[in-house]
Simulated scan of single mutants.
Amino acid sequence: MSTQGRGTGDSIAAVADVAQMAYLARLFRFFGRTQCEGRSAVYAGLSAVVAEEPEVLGLLLRAPAEQRRPSLLFAAVNHLLRERRDHPLAAYYPIHGGAKPFDDGAPAAFRDFCRQHRDGLAELLAHRTTQTNEVRRCFALRMGLARVAAAWPGPLALLEIGASAGLNLRFDAYGYRVGDRQTRPEDGSPVVLSTTVRGDGPVDAVFRRPPHVPYRLGADLDPVDIADPEAARWLEAFIWPEQVAELRTLRAAIDVARRNPQPLVRADAVRDTARLIAEVPGRAPVVVFTASLLTYLDAEARSRFAAQLATAARDRPVAWLFTEGPGLLAGTNVITPLADPLRTTGELYAVGVSLRDAHSHHDELLALADPYLQWLAPARSPHDDFTWLASS
């Protein structure tokens, strides 16, 4: 190739990098505004900082395109900070013993940490993937399983797509608390999950005895082996700075899973879901659970995933139980009664179930919720459009 050709190629690459940096800046601003405000003062503040820092944004260009996410950068920093608690940045992270509120010193400490550990961060970003396992989303699983059991009594099989470490597969080992109501954890488990409720919709489904689920399988592109301490530490890195209680809960859930591990397989949601359903032994209905899976799929991939469910439902009953962004459900053949602007918002999730077999297809919205199930707004009726939540 000629020198002129190399120069042209370099120019094209430079333009692409500039465009990608601009996109990442917008992504961090959106993340800080929609996901962090009211939940993490540290990440809300740092998201605004990163959006104005080309040097820090440039670190994410080391990551595969599909992994260039605020959560991955912040997790990489958190992972390294765990072993470097003498750095001034740790003073802003309660999970690392810090107690300082976010102030003018935090941005400088963050920039300095990223500069000092540039190579370590680049290595993590290039080779690690986003891995979260928010066990509070088991509230959605409990609600959905109760609805499926009402439609299809008897044993159920559970297949979680995007299972990470598979902690949600042990949903029945955890206690659940809403207000002054609580279920007891199973087998002396220390894990008790809590959430708050908005509106006056019923939450009884959370407290019903779950159906018998003799078959459970988790599938993920990069499943987490919690028997590996380093893998467990990487999972912990996605806990946010102020989430001291959440870190304790995650560690307790990991301990529960280590005592009774559930099977995990490496699989692709858009290629392998129908096959995994077909391989479930027996004829029991299969519940496919996803939590934030659609966030990682583009429009074409979301449509292909839905097609996998439709294919499988020709041969046996399949329930898709989801907690996903409502705007991302477009193209998946799921119909919800949501009114605008809730239909397209990125600030909350829809909890619902899609019941499918060879002859029927029924969709039902069970609740709207915070993406991490910190609060839950149960539907007041099967056709609730949640206009009451939008105006509250």
Score class of each variant (00 low, 15 high):
16 A>I: 11
19 A>F: 06
21 M>C: 01
24 L>D: 05
26 R>H: 13
28 F>S: 03
34 T>F: 12
43 Y>D: 01
48 A>M: 13
56 V>H: 10
59 L>C: 01
71 S>H: 10
71 S>D: 14
72 L>C: 04
77 V>T: 07
80 L>E: 06
82 R>K: 12
85 R>C: 10
89 L>E: 12
107 P>S: 04
115 R>F: 08
117 H>M: 10
119 D>S: 14
119 D>V: 12
119 D>L: 03
128 R>I: 06
129 T>M: 00
130 T>M: 09
131 Q>Y: 09
133 N>F: 09
151 A>V: 12
160 E>Q: 11
167 L>P: 12
168 N>C: 15
177 R>N: 02
178 V>I: 15
185 P>T: 11
188 G>P: 08
198 R>F: 02
208 R>I: 09
210 P>W: 12
216 R>V: 13
226 I>Y: 02
231 A>H: 02
238 F>Y: 06
246 E>C: 04
249 T>I: 15
251 R>K: 12
255 D>Q: 14
256 V>Q: 10
257 A>T: 04
261 P>K: 05
268 D>P: 02
271 R>T: 08
276 L>Y: 09
280 V>G: 00
284 A>E: 15
287 V>R: 08
288 V>C: 06
291 A>H: 12
296 Y>A: 01
305 F>Q: 02
306 A>D: 08
319 A>D: 03
320 W>F: 07
325 G>S: 15
328 L>M: 13
330 A>L: 11
330 A>D: 09
331 G>M: 08
337 P>S: 09
343 R>Q: 10
348 L>K: 06
349 Y>L: 03
351 V>C: 14
361 H>Q: 09
386 F>H: 00
388 W>L: 02
